[in-house]
Write a protein that binds this DNA or RNA. Structure first.
Length: 555
RNA sequence: GCGCCUGUAGCUCAGUCGGAUAGAGCAACGGCCUUCUAAGCCGUGGGUCGCAGGUUCGAAUCCUGCCAGGCGUACCA
């Protein structure tokens, strides 16, 4: 619809110029947009404002000339006005919106999709929590954001792969092994001291109990290093299984689980470093090896091989990201916790050093979640084992509420997640507000079928012509914004835009529902309204689907 | 110190490319269920968009400086 108005304006400029009413056919870079205020019309154009300079004419005078030369062959426009400093406001006839409603209905689940991505291959890597403990709520937010960004990119025409990077190598895993081992030794009845850095939570004890059931006291006879290694591998495996299970129940599935250890096993870390060394990007100083990231925008160079000969985590990451591009992804998106933001500059530098463009790598920083219960903060400390796991949150408030609430904020602002609020079935809880629309419409459609014998609703022009109420136009206009919303959300990697779109559409529906009866006296009107609400239901379902939230038939 | 993020109504937050009188929800107050689900709707109040400059027809939005909060600033992961 916007494009139609744009074209009409363009034609008016050309026509006015030909008729000698305008000195030139030059136009500024103007926009057609839906104004915030209803009384500014369905669409507003700032063409007269931005063209005032090239045309050397006062904006309002210019607007008058344009309107005099505006042609409306489709008879879509009811009236126009010149407002404020020179905006042209367009008020459309209801009939102008009816074909759009039919288009949306016809597009079905494809409505809102585009080919903006052109089939480009994108990888979204998210969660990637270390397998040293269960997922907590912060990981849940990252999971919801990452999964939804992936969905939105798919809708925008990208080919998306979801990946989880497993940090199954290095010191944290050893610490995990030691923590479990010491707990095991204690279970066997020996005095032990737990070092500061060891993990404490109940799950460590559970793992130790499991190992004791498996092995009895036999591990005590092994060398400590061997025993710790056994505990580490067993614990990491078990924890990872738990993580997979938690994510599965959260509705998140990964296409690939990528092991850090496998990078070493396949020699990719050494190969990546050798490549950089060969190009002078990795060099030796003070007995360590450094990467020249400062040549690529980082504030200083970074160590990749320490004096003790061990590679750093950064070295693994260089190899891992190189491998991503080697696997053919045009774009790579990492979802990280905000506390890792200091890492972006060096990772971007490494990607560029490896031969990619900077804009082929993007990081979504997900800020922290403050978990509350009835307004009171819930204690969270991983090390001390005092935290609420994602699994517990999902069990308590449900997957839908959890996912939706994680997506009600821009990902770069901190989020208060109140467990009591998430369970409340009031309009303080936005997930029910939106799902309720779907259930209400389902109820209407059931009743239409059962009591009125109306099954499938068709796009009958005569029925559509009955839709003239302000609230009906508001619904169609709200739905019309969906493709643009998805496109912008994809371009900016901002899933919360879809959440807010759904809340807006839901508000428009509830207002309509309270004011007008769908199942009306007049059969033609009833069919028109049924078509309208069926379309709303379909768009709601599609939007909720992007967020990974269900669209219930009954509530 | 340096870097990144945040600062919008009492509270929680929206506000792509600069647009008209800055919008929601909650909380407060007042209304609406014999009719398709009241998990809903309607109405009333409520603002120096952190502060100060600058750019321009026009700034919450762009630029500069400052203030406050969070996070980061390892040969840790």
């Amino acid at each position: 619809m916007k494009d139609i108005i744009r074209e009409m304006i363009g034609a008016a400029v050309a026509r006015a110029h030909q008729a000698g009413a305008l000195p030139s056919d030059a136009m500024g870079d103007f926009v057609v947009e839906a104004p915030k205020l209803d009384h500014h019309g369905d669409f507003a154009a700032n063409v007269a404002l931005v063209s005032a300079k090239p045309q050397r004419m006062a904006p309002r005078r210019l607007a008058e000339i344009l309107l005099a030369h505006l042609d409306d062959p489709g008879q879509r426009i009811e009236r126009t006005e010149i407002a404020g400093p020179g905006f042209i406001n367009f008020f459309l006839r209801p009939a102008a919106w009816h074909p759009l409603l039919a288009d949306i209905h016809r597009a079905g689940a494809h409505y809102g999709t585009s080919d903006a991505g052109g089939g480009q291959r994108v990888q979204v890597e998210f969660v990637s929590a270390n397998p040293t403990g269960p997922l907590h709520v912060g990981h849940g937010r990252g999971a919801a954001v990452g999964d939804t960004v992936a969905n939105i990119l798919e809708a925008a025409g990208y080919e998306v792969q979801r990946e989880y990077y497993i940090n199954d190598s290095g010191r944290q895993i050893r610490t995990l092994g030691l923590s479990v081992y010491l707990r095991y030794v204690a279970l066997c009845g020996r005095e032990v001291e737990f070092p500061e850095e060891c993990y404490q939570g109940d799950y460590i004890r559970d793992l130790a109990v499991e190992i004791r059931q498996l092995k009895g006291d036999a591990l005590l006879d092994e060398a400590e290093a061997t025993a710790v290694d056994f505990c580490a591998r067993h614990a990491a495996g078990t924890i990872l299984d738990g993580i997979r299970n938690d994510l599965d129940r959260f509705g998140v599935r990964f296409d690939r689980w990528y092991s850090e250890q496998s990078l070493f096993d396949a020699g990719r870390v050494e190969a990546a470093l050798a490549d950089l060394r060969g190009r002078g990007i990795v060099y030796e100083k003070d007995g360590a090896q450094w990467c020249r990231t400062s040549d690529y925008g980082d504030e200083k160079d970074r160590v990749v091989v320490r004096q003790n000969g061990l590679t750093t985590y950064f070295a693994s990451d260089i190899a891992y990201h190189k491998d991503k591009y080697d696997r053919g992804f045009d774009r790579v998106i990492d979802v990280w916790g905000a506390d890792h933001h200091g890492y972006i500059a060096r990772m971007t530098a490494a990607v560029e050093a490896a031969g990619q463009r900077r804009d082929q790598f993007q990081v979504i920083l997900v800020h922290l979640v403050n978990l509350l219960r009835g307004g009171q903060p819930v204690a969270m400390s991983t090390r001390a084992g005092e935290f609420v796991t994602l699994a517990e949150v999902v069990a308590e408030v449900g997957r839908d509420a959890a996912r939706f609430i994680f997506l009600t904020r821009h990902h770069e602002s901190a989020l208060d997640f109140d467990l009591e609020l998430a369970k409340q079935k009031t309009n303080e809880n936005p997930v029910y507000y939106v799902q309720y629309v779907h259930a209400r419409i389902a109820s209407i459609l059931r009743k239409a079928a059962e009591e009125y014998g109306i099954g499938e609703v068709m796009a009958d022009p005569a029925a559509l012509a009955t839709l003239v109420e302000t609230e009906e136009m508001a619904l169609i206009k709200a739905m019309a914004a969906f493709p643009e919303t998805v496109a912008i959300a994809a371009a900016h990697l901002e899933p919360h835009r879809v959440t807010f779109f759904l809340m807006d559409l839901a508000a428009a529906f509830h207002a309509y529902y309270n004011r007008h009866r769908v199942l009306a006296e007049d059969p033609l009107l009833t069919r028109g309204r049924l078509f309208l609400v069926a379309t709303v239901q379909q768009v709601i379902a599609r939007g909720l689907g992007l967020l990974g939230v269900s669209a219930p038939e009954r509530m």
